Amino acid sequence: MKILVTGADGFIGSHLTEELVKRGYNVKAFVNYNSFNSWGWLDQSSMDVKSQLEVFAGDIRDPFGVKQAMVGCTHVLHLAALIAIPYSYHSPSTYIDTNIVGTLNIVQAAKELNVDKVVHTSTSEVYGTALYVPIDEDHPLQGQSPYSASKIGADQMALSFYRSFETPISVIRPFNTYGPRQSARAVIPTIISQIANGIHNIKLGSVTPTRDFNYVEDTVNGFISVMESDQSIGEVINIGSNYEVSIGETADTIADIMGVKLVIETDEDRLRPEKSEVERLWCNNQKAKDLLGWEPMFGQKEGFRRGLQATINWFTDEDNLSRYKADVYNL
């Protein structure tokens, strides 16, 4: 068994790659080619992890490089994607190339190379504002941003190869993952990094939307559970905590843990267009429990607080905090 992880240099991908190595899997990490020879967050991994990794630097948009990377691999965990919603308003065509064409490159190569399993990464954003809660896998898909539209297209491309060619594909649909290493464009690192830099009048977008936050350790375990389960082939599976909380309440909880009083200021640049804002997300994770035996370890209010504490501990380390520009809005 040899596993290729695309997007291994990113937030979730680096955590997933490290956990797979720790569990004894043979792992190849697909990282985005760059002139700095950076492996992204994998550069911060321990030597015990890095010494056991095979690293392939390429571009998910290049079908030839993707196929070359997949040669000899039995399983592919496909995480490589553009994920920032604000940037998708700015440059939507890059999301088509990376998210849809990149996924096509993966599943086409999987078909040609007879790969045993592809786990394609979706997102809860494909559901848009909840029409009913909690959101199960049968909920309608609503493209409320160019990003979510591109992920709907990528999901359907992946599933079409399962239906057309019996390519063994599973779709994992994580809800809002948070934790160490997350980009400051996401709301939890935005709040923590501003407070940690002594800013108590913090800038946010809308604070009324609700989210189902999933600690990165739970998301990683979800990926591995999907990969290891034969029952997941051809299925879309939500991975979430089944706990709904507003952005405002999240900010208050972080402030309470960090022992500060907050004043929240609305930053117009951080607001989504009215019809693009996803107002409510709340995960029904029953299918993951039934099919995979997966359970969130950081679920409900108590688990969310533990996950926030672990995230705060990481971000308030000076070496980690110095990597973030708390005073600059990150698209």
Rank of each mutant, 00 (worst) to 15 (best):
I172S: 05
F213D: 07
I224H: 03
S14I: 10
E228G: 04
L331Q: 13
K151I: 08
P134Q: 02
G259H: 10
G10K: 07
I172M: 12
I96L: 14
C283Q: 06
Y162E: 05
L308N: 09
T167S: 03
E277K: 07
H120A: 14
E277L: 11
N242Q: 12
C283K: 01
S276W: 07
G248E: 10
L20Q: 04
D62H: 03
M297L: 15
W282M: 04
D43Y: 08
L82V: 01
R306H: 09
A158C: 01
Y25F: 13
H90D: 14
A288I: 08
D212L: 04
P134S: 02
Y147C: 00
D218A: 00
I3G: 00
T190F: 05
L308P: 11
F175I: 04
I83G: 10
T177C: 12
S183K: 11
T103M: 11
F56Q: 01
N221S: 11
E125C: 13
V187R: 04
A149N: 07
L42H: 10
H75C: 02
L308E: 09
V187W: 07
E18C: 14
D267L: 06
F30L: 00
L281D: 08
G299P: 04
S46Y: 09
F175N: 03
E54A: 03
G205L: 05
K111M: 09
A81V: 06
S14T: 10
W294H: 06
R211F: 07
E125L: 12
N105F: 00
E302R: 07
I195F: 09
A8P: 04
G299R: 04
F56L: 01
I3A: 02
N32K: 14
R173W: 04
M157V: 15
S93Y: 14
K289P: 06
K261A: 10
P209K: 08
R323N: 15
K275D: 15
S148T: 10
K111H: 13
E249V: 02
G307W: 08
C283S: 12
